[in-house]
Design a protein around this nucleic acid. Structure first.
Ligand SMILES: [Mn+2]
Ligand SMILES: [Mn+2]
Ligand SMILES: [Mn+2]
Ligand SMILES: [Mn+2]
Lengths: 216, 216
DNA sequence: TTGAATGATTAGATTAAGCAAATATATAAA
DNA sequence: TTTATATATTTGCTTAATCTAATCATTCAA
């Protein structure tokens, strides 16, 4: 079941990113060849989790969407648990959660959820779906789209991966940090910002497009 | 790797029980057919984890023994963590630990171990191997082998399974309980014992052979 | 409207993990 | 010593998940 769960989750997240699910994109996200993904989606179709028609974009069925949402819930609860209860840093937890999410015990995740006080987001600010796999759609803005002079709160990291998260550690930027935009360089759209004890930090546009914020 | 790890652990535990590793016993413990176990041990031999010679009893190599001990360590740390930190009951944790033990993160188990204060045993009193897979050999006596009038401490459960553990819950017998043997029925070797607030509890021999105790 | 280019599909093979049926070996009983 | 029994092995087949190479379909640009 583990492999199929990972395919479903990948498809779910492609939809979340607003893209349509093609075999090439799916195979790329899954790190397998296109024929491999092709034969897998046929099997998922047989199981009623995916709608597959030759040469048409793939779709998750309601059943598939629900299954994927529940895996994502387990993944994000696990990540939060690893950070909050076991003292892991936010860049260390994804790979471990990638395994934990496949443990077939509802109760394990209920217990972790309870120990955490039923958090709404994972350590990277992404929302945790409910027990039915439904996820609330948060609509944060990108820091990159803000204007000079605005003050914002860092709420989530888009496509959080270890290199970005380590970079943010180094800059002491964490969720909840209040950031003031001092200047935007027109040439490369890099931003000079201040926050906490830092009075002049320059952030490239590559970074700013991945910092999701809320005006405050 | 998961399947192979389960085979190694099963072989390790057969040795612990003082038996020689036959394909029929191994296949029974693994819940697979004998030919399946046969082809698996050949592959484990290729990997240098098992010594396989046709028609001879199977052996774990030092490498195989170490690998098995390390999985057992992960299993028992996980069980202890589930009971102590997440509030599971001792009869619920085995199946979950059976999955957690295969997560390939040393650090996860180090963190759990640390949170627990480096326990020496799992929730059923079985010793936790060290990081090199070496397990201390505890030599408790069976309650069934004790004599009338003796007072003992319940230290571990032999072959702890959910039905036995639930029975012990019902009798409020837990590790550490001090038990006084009041009478042994010669006919069926059942014991009448007292402990805590219970002044006359009868335990069948089936139960007594699985309660490991220390005279105190 | 006809090609490329891109993307999807099929065909054929591999490896891990499993099974049942048939056969072979070892051992203990006669 | 022979035979019966238990155990082990081989053979041949299955399914899940993967690959490469070859072919097919769709679409967009000329
Ligand atoms: Mn993650
Ligand atoms: Mn996963
Ligand atoms: Mn166990
Ligand atoms: Mn296991």
């Amino acid at each position: 079941m583990k492999t199929k769960e990972n395919y479903l989750k990948a498809m779910y997240m492609i939809v979340q990113e607003g893209k349509s699910i093609s075999l090439s994109l799916l195979s790329e996200k899954m790190g397998v060849s296109i024929p491999t993904a092709n034969s897998m989606v046929k099997r998922l179709d047989d199981m009623g989790l995916v709608k597959y028609r030759k040469y048409k974009p793939l779709e998750l069925t309601p059943k598939g969407k629900k299954a994927a949402g529940r895996i994502l819930r387990k993944h994000r609860i696990a990540e939060m648990y690893l950070v909050e209860q076991l003292g892991f840093s936010w860049e260390e937890v994804h790979d471990i959660a990638e395994e934990i999410e496949h443990i077939p015990s509802e109760k394990l995740f209920d217990k972790m959820d309870e120990a955490l006080g039923f958090p709404e987001t994972d350590p990277h600010g992404s929302p945790i779906p409910d027990k039915n796999g439904n996820m609330s759609s948060t609509c944060y803005a990108k820091l990159a789209d803000m204007e000079s002079g605005q003050t914002v709160r860092l709420c989530a990291i888009h496509k959080s991966d270890a290199p970005l998260l380590k970079f943010l550690n180094q800059k002491e930027l964490k969720l909840g940090t209040i950031i003031k935009i001092l200047h935007i360089e027109p040439f490369d759209k890099s931003m000079t910002v201040s926050y906490d004890d830092f009075s002049e930090v320059v952030l490239s546009n590559d970074v700013c497009v991945r910092l999701l914020v809320e005006v405050c």
